Simulated scan of single mutants.
Amino acid sequence: MTEPLTLYTHPMSRGRIARWMLEETGTTYHTEIVTFGSAMKSPRYLAINPMGKVPAIRHGDTVVTECAAICAYLADAFPEAGLAPPLAERGAYYRWLFFAAGPLEAAITDRDLGMEPNIEQQGRVGYGSIEAVLETLEVAVSAHEFIAGPHFSAADVYLGSHIGWGLQFGSLESCPAFADYWARVSDREAYRRANSLDEQAARQAANPQGA
């Protein structure tokens, strides 16, 4: 697909996931930094993402928001990068991509906000309990080299980012399984390029005048 591709992002956001995924595809893209506050809530940007949040991508006439959706879309849009298994083998790929987007993120966020459900409430939330989520995740990242099997995929970009951030900021308890998995999936040139680009953007955002 040769349509122009734009990443709308901010270096201190989940846009880092989309940036990493784009670097994995090897495609050319334009980056538009959207600052928090009025720019992110402006009519211009709300026409792209009515939620007023980053990241988002525009690929030709197609707009995609939500990091998991962006990762899945880019894997399909650039199949030559090999970031999604063959269709008949995508069970684990879809399972863990959306496990991270649903139960994992919700459980960690609720705990960080002091809103863990009690035993009676656990049946009403999609993840049940944070303990169940983390036990499930620990087993999953230990089963294979990568989350969907022997090959790196978009699911590793998304799930790996959650684990990496959790370990870095303390929202996820460190354990050998999580640390080893993060070391495996982040040891990639595309990740290093993406991280370098975002760090540079963060410095520019903090010092826009170059003083």
Results as ranks from 00 to 15, higher is better:
residue 61 D to T: 06
residue 66 E to C: 00
residue 114 G to S: 03
residue 165 W to Q: 05
residue 68 A to E: 00
residue 173 E to I: 09
residue 57 I to T: 11
residue 183 A to N: 09
residue 34 V to Q: 09
residue 205 A to S: 10
residue 166 G to Q: 04
residue 169 F to E: 06
residue 74 L to T: 10
residue 52 G to Q: 06
residue 192 R to K: 15
residue 114 G to R: 05
residue 172 L to N: 05
residue 23 E to V: 09
residue 172 L to K: 10
residue 58 R to N: 11
residue 149 G to Q: 02
residue 191 Y to S: 02
residue 4 P to Y: 07
residue 35 T to R: 10
residue 164 G to D: 02
residue 103 P to E: 13
residue 29 Y to V: 06
residue 120 E to Y: 07
residue 90 R to Y: 09
residue 100 A to V: 10
residue 153 S to L: 05
residue 171 S to R: 13
residue 56 A to D: 07
residue 145 E to Q: 15
residue 97 L to T: 08
residue 159 L to W: 05
residue 205 A to G: 05
residue 183 A to H: 08
residue 162 H to W: 13
residue 31 T to G: 02
residue 162 H to Q: 15
residue 197 L to D: 06
residue 89 E to G: 04
residue 57 I to L: 10
residue 51 M to N: 14
residue 135 E to D: 15
residue 160 G to C: 04
residue 7 L to Y: 05
residue 176 P to S: 08
residue 161 S to A: 14
residue 37 G to E: 08
residue 4 P to W: 02
residue 88 A to I: 12
residue 14 R to Q: 02
residue 117 P to R: 01
residue 36 F to H: 08
residue 139 V to E: 15
residue 12 M to D: 03
residue 166 G to Y: 02
residue 26 G to M: 12
residue 3 E to H: 13
residue 151 H to R: 15
residue 166 G to M: 00
residue 86 P to H: 08
residue 8 Y to H: 07
residue 32 E to C: 13
residue 93 Y to T: 00
residue 156 D to W: 04
residue 167 L to N: 12
residue 201 A to W: 01
residue 33 I to H: 05
residue 104 L to H: 01
residue 15 G to L: 07
residue 181 Y to V: 03
residue 81 A to T: 01
residue 171 S to V: 13
residue 60 G to A: 11
residue 59 H to F: 10
residue 26 G to R: 01
residue 179 A to V: 15
residue 192 R to A: 13
residue 75 A to E: 07
residue 155 A to E: 10
residue 39 A to N: 04
residue 143 A to P: 03
residue 167 L to P: 00
residue 154 A to P: 03
residue 99 F to K: 04
residue 115 M to D: 13
residue 41 K to S: 11
residue 84 A to P: 10
residue 196 S to V: 08
residue 39 A to G: 09
residue 209 Q to D: 14
residue 110 D to V: 05
residue 164 G to M: 05
residue 19 R to V: 00
residue 161 S to W: 14
residue 190 A to C: 10
residue 181 Y to E: 03
residue 13 S to G: 06
residue 170 G to I: 13
residue 57 I to G: 04
residue 77 A to R: 08
residue 155 A to V: 01
residue 15 G to C: 00
residue 40 M to R: 01
residue 162 H to T: 03
residue 51 M to Y: 09
residue 79 P to G: 12
residue 118 N to Y: 07
residue 12 M to E: 14
residue 154 A to V: 11
residue 136 T to L: 12
residue 50 P to L: 08
residue 117 P to E: 00
residue 127 Y to T: 02
residue 37 G to L: 12
residue 35 T to K: 12
residue 140 A to I: 00
residue 18 A to T: 06
residue 204 Q to L: 05
residue 182 W to P: 11
residue 158 Y to C: 12
residue 65 T to K: 02
residue 177 A to G: 07
residue 58 R to T: 04
residue 164 G to R: 02
